[in-house]
Amino acid sequence: MNISVMIGALPDLLGGVALTTELVALALLVGFVIALSTALARLSGVAVLRWLATAYVFTFRGTPLLVQIFLIYYGLSQFAFVRDSVAWVVLKQPFWCTLMALALNTGAYTAEVFRGGILSVPHNQIEAARAIGMSPVTAFRRIIWPLAIRQALPAYGNEMILMVKASSLASTVTLMDITGVAQTLAADTYMPIEIFTAAALVYLCLTYAMTQAIHFFERRLDVTRRRS
């Protein structure tokens, strides 16, 4: 193990951190919106919405992320009408293709996490909220969602950490994220063990920071502890 090679690789790898962070942050943000809407659609009384949401979750949870990235990046570009359309401005860029795949993927998983959280809210709480005159929206915002997210946070945190690692697939479509930089360095130096160990340490730092953030929110949402 050549420590100096590992240290020498760090500046380049940190250059990849910016792209990885950007991808993960945006994917989680967009994924959150997709997930919440999908979870609500799956629980709604409208059959079409329920059916669409179920189909979306089934498709994106049931196929590998790598295949999704390849289908969006290489697949869509095979069709001339896609290349000629306005969408090509976005689809031409590997960044947007990867972001789309990551957001749709995490959206599907998180939708199920949120749905589970919402279903765990005791019925009497909802009935009580309605009984004192809250509208369904207010009841959701003030009673159901706070209780649901508290239940869902550990699983949601897990999904967020998975997203950091899943973003490494961006390197397969030419993006220079942490893994992309590491692969190139490994090919240049012929020292894959040192380089990928250094890359793994960088990922560990990222996921550690994320774990701490999730813990912070878990503690904040833990009503029983705040009282004591």
Binding site: Y74, S77, Q183, T184
Partner: peptide, 18 residues
């Protein structure tokens, strides 16, 4: 320079106009 895992993928992107 854009780096690809395989020559096939590299050629797909050439064809796609990227």
């Amino acid at each position: 320079i854009k780096l690809y895992d395989t020559v096939d993928n590299q050629n797909l992107d050439l064809k796609a106009g990227r």
